[in-house]
Design a protein around this nucleic acid. Structure first.
Lengths: 256, 256
DNA sequence: AAAATAGTGTCTCTTAGACACTATCGG
DNA sequence: CCGATAGTGTCTAAGAGACACTATTTT
């Protein structure tokens, strides 16, 4: 009976979109080491510069402008799968944290027609971006400090996508255990603290001593018993791990 | 130059989706009054039952099963706008809280083809659903208590959409000021408490005295000076209002 | 010894949350 | 005056966050 219904379904009854795409905001944390000073830690976003000319030799849409990497979703995959595939194609990176954060479908957002975009953000440790390469459609691939994004020309509505991505990652870093994706499996309290300080200046997180104490009481962080590292200081430091759990901290019970 | 690029763009280069739809999980809170006892307050979800036969007299896809209201997005609107329009068409409700929470695009999720769905949830006060009516495609419209959803036949992948919606609204009620959409402009602490208790059993929220005290210290809630109501009890109770602001409460600084 | 990060001792102030109590009003 | 909801008084234990201090290692 569903079979009959199926035959009768007329897909021409409604206009259909001209394209279904996935875009990806790839974030990484860059740590700039300095002699005799603490490193400068900042969050960076990867962008690609669109070529002026396509592979076929014709002028490219929004050529020369910077954009989030992305591309068309294929009928046999989800937008999230497409995002993973495209990130792999664009940068050679696989198996990293990826999260959908928005749909962009405002009529007229893309001059090529009715084109829908699913926006994702990805978090990659800094070193995996070392081996990145420009692809066919990209003139150049580059990391930008978030503060520097204001001064560059962005394609389509990517200014909007990027500002939404930044808001989303900020909130996720502070309200979920997403920070683990910026860190090695086992990390010191100061490494976690450095990640969080890229998105907040909360005094409780800023104070070394408070944070060193607090980390031991958090139910979603576990001490790696007996293990230490000296990679962040001369004195060996304890290592911690994230424990998988989801956390809802009601705003109605917290302190202000 | 972008003009030339535009002409050259071949939209047939990629396969395009067969449909772009919006679905809406409409939640309301039902308060069942009882003689000499506190009311039973529970969260309800509105579903429609799909007709067995379409308007054209042919068997309907997934006929007889229950589903979220929704429909096709038109090229001149966003999915969010479509969700508002469809809710208005289905139920006569307008201007209410609506939030996108997910994209459903798994290949094969809809037997009619490559059909994408944007899922939204909406929050409506109970009384506006009074005037609801079944539309062309719907046999019946009904509110279900969340616990009762397990026992009914759901169309397409709506079981997934619904369980995601419940998780999303639960988290939003506790971590944002979304609860205001279930309440009148000005409300008593016990009314807010009743809403929150539909999604949590946190002792700090459950205890009347704790909650009555806590509400006065929350920066996003303001006392309506001098105003009281007797609608919830014999003794007149103070009224409160939500103040617009966005709140990020880091999990790293909270108490456990 | 100096420099740098890791981490603890201890104090003060605030808050959570429990328990007992009072307040207001309708029936 | 009973019952129901609203709201306060008061206590205790726990935590936040600040400051001063100690610990471990490299140069």
């Amino acid at each position: 009976m569903n079979q009959q219904a199926l035959k009768k379904y007329d897909s021409g009854k409604y206009r259909t979109p001209d394209g279904y795409t996935s875009d990806i905001a790839v974030f990484t944390i860059h740590s700039e080491k300095r002699e005799h000073k603490p490193p400068i830690v900042s969050m960076m976003l990867m962008l690609i510069q669109r070529t002026e000319i396509t592979a076929e030799g014709t002028p490219n849409i929004e050529g020369g402008k910077w954009a989030l990497p992305g591309g068309f979703v294929q009928p046999d995959e989800t937008a999230l799968e497409a995002a993973h595939r495209e990130l792999l194609e664009e940068t050679g990176v696989r198996g990293i944290h990826m999260k959908h954060y928005g749909v962009y479908d405002r009529p007229g957002r893309d001059p090529r027609g009715w084109i829908l975009s699913n926006a994702h953000y990805a978090i990659v440790p800094e070193d995996v971006l070392k081996g990145r390469k420009a692809s066919d459609d990209a003139e150049d691939v580059q990391l930008f400090r978030l503060e520097d994004l204001k001064s560059i020309q962005l394609a389509f509505d990517h200014e909007q996508l990027i500002s939404d991505a930044i808001r989303e990652i900020r909130s996720d870093l502070l309200q979920t255990t997403a920070a683990k994706n910026f860190l090695p499996e086992e990390f010191t309290y100061s490494e976690l603290q450095a990640v969080l300080l890229t998105v907040t200046d909360d005094p409780a997180i800023k104070s070394e001593q408070s944070f060193a104490r607090k980390i031991k009481t958090l139910p979603f962080i576990q001490e790696a018993e007996g293990k230490t590292t000296a990679r962040t200081s001369k004195k060996p430091a304890k290592l911690y791990r994230f424990v998988e759990m989801d956390i809802i901290k009601p705003i109605y019970t917290a302190r202000y």
